[in-house]
Simulated scan of single mutants.
Amino acid sequence: MTVAGVQQVTELLGKSLYLALKNQKHRPRPGVRPNTLRIISKQLCECMQFLREAGLIHADLKTENVLLQHPDMTLDDPNPRVKLIDFGAATWDEDDHGTIIQTRHYRAPEVVLGLPWTFPCDMWSIACIILELREGVLTFDTHDTAQHLAMMERLSGPIPVAMARNADHGAEDLFDRDHWRLRWPELSGGERGRKRDYRAENEVERVRALTERLSDDALLRDMLVPMFHIDPSLRLTPRDALSSPYFTSSLTSLAN
């Protein structure tokens, strides 16, 4: 079979969720509809369960790597289907793990801190994708490590002391050595301690507002909060996510 004279070796998929979300920007609320969010979120968790059973960690989950199943499919379809792509960074759990994985905005706390990582890092990324689909914007829109960790704390609570103590890659310098508290907003001007940047602080507080808006959807909140657990050993597993009321309750309970 050929497409435009080129031999087709894989199925032809549609737009990425990243591009599909960009098309939503013209709407009063750029995120996807509640029913669409649940349908796509369930597929993502099913993908994670499949990968976990196979012993494979994707390690680069983001909206660019989740594609709609057909070229003519949109987020307005009543039952959108998605497929996961780009396994270039994937690794088997028993293999050696690199120190830097995942695209920054979807990077799990243990990876940011230079700690050992495994399957739960993918669940953190999935939580980022789900919240991005709901809000229409990146959850952690930063390239600064201190600001990134501060955003995580606004969403999920303080970095556990044990994780702060064992941080690597220079991240250990971002904590007060007496109480192992993140040095924020002192480092809001950058990791070299320049003049405080109040715009950076405001961006951190924006993440706090996301958590407040989640209170409007108790079922989603109750699933996402444990998916965003900073301690990977306590983070929600795909199996537990799929058995949560967010997925098991009647679809008719959600407004379109």
Rank of each mutant, 00 (worst) to 15 (best):
R213F: 04
L133A: 04
F228T: 00
D197K: 11
E172V: 10
Q24K: 15
M151A: 02
I101G: 00
H70L: 11
K15P: 06
I85G: 07
C121Q: 12
S16L: 01
S244L: 07
P226S: 04
E11N: 14
M1K: 14
L75S: 09
N35F: 04
T211M: 15
E110C: 06
S125Q: 04
L214V: 04
G190T: 01
G98E: 05
Y198R: 15
T36S: 13
R221F: 02
R81H: 15
K83E: 06
D168Q: 15
G193S: 03
M1E: 14
M223N: 01
G193E: 08
T74Y: 11
F228D: 00
V6W: 15
E153T: 12
G190I: 00
Y198T: 13
R206Q: 10
G31W: 06
G170W: 04
L224C: 05
R194E: 13
R239F: 02
V9F: 12
P116F: 03
P109R: 02
N65R: 10
H58L: 00
P245M: 01
K83F: 01
L251Y: 13
R107S: 02
G55E: 13
Q43A: 02
N79T: 06
P160G: 02
L133S: 09
V82H: 06
L138S: 09
K83Y: 05
H97Q: 14
D197S: 09
P238Y: 07
Q102W: 02
L155K: 02
A209T: 13
S41D: 06
S41E: 11
D141H: 12
A241Y: 04
T139F: 03
D60M: 06
S249Y: 15
I159Y: 08
E203V: 01
L234T: 10
Q7Y: 13
T36K: 11
R38W: 05
V112Q: 07
A241N: 09
M1Q: 13
G189Q: 04
I130L: 01
Q49C: 09
Y18P: 09
D216V: 00
R235G: 00
T248M: 14
F50E: 14
Y106K: 04
L13N: 10
K25G: 03
L174S: 02
L12R: 15
I40Y: 11
R199F: 05
L182E: 06
L210C: 06
D95K: 08
I100L: 14
R27D: 07
N65P: 12
Q69H: 11
L84H: 09
M223E: 04
E110I: 00
A4R: 15
D216Q: 14
S41Q: 13
H143L: 02
E64D: 15
I126C: 09
A171F: 03
R134S: 11
N23D: 15
L131N: 08
V112Y: 02
A241V: 03
L12H: 15
